[in-house]
Amino acid sequence: MPETEAKPEAPDRKEILEFLSEHKTKMKLFLKVCAHCGLCAESCFIYTTRGCKPEYMPSHKMINSIGKLYKKKGKVSWETFEEIKEIVWKRCVLCTRCYCPLGIDIPEMIALARSICRSQNVLPDFDEE
């Protein structure tokens, strides 16, 4: 048996959809409730310590990870998964300190995106320098 399995041509859409449909109501609601106000930014220590770049803002991470998967109905390429991987594994540590004035549970959404990544074997690069 080879050490690493060959990567499929495209991510398993059916499996992604299963994850999405399981949490559909809450996810859809959170994405809708988000007023795109940007007030969550300063509550993220990664945002404040990395030059206050928009891509580290909690809502930006939510919209561009689980939001993207939901919007594209799971039909995403490996390139998109690479971007999501960067967001959910490197730009968020799931410290759950982010604060949304409207009460959106952003960490839960990031955790869900991580679960979908895991299901597709998109994992953090632990050996990366």
Partner: peptide, 13 residues
């Protein structure tokens, strides 16, 4: 704010 604040603009549609 939506137009000129970069973090708000980045998530605006």
């Amino acid at each position: 704010r939506r137009i000129f604040v970069s973090r708000v603009r980045s998530i605006s549609t």
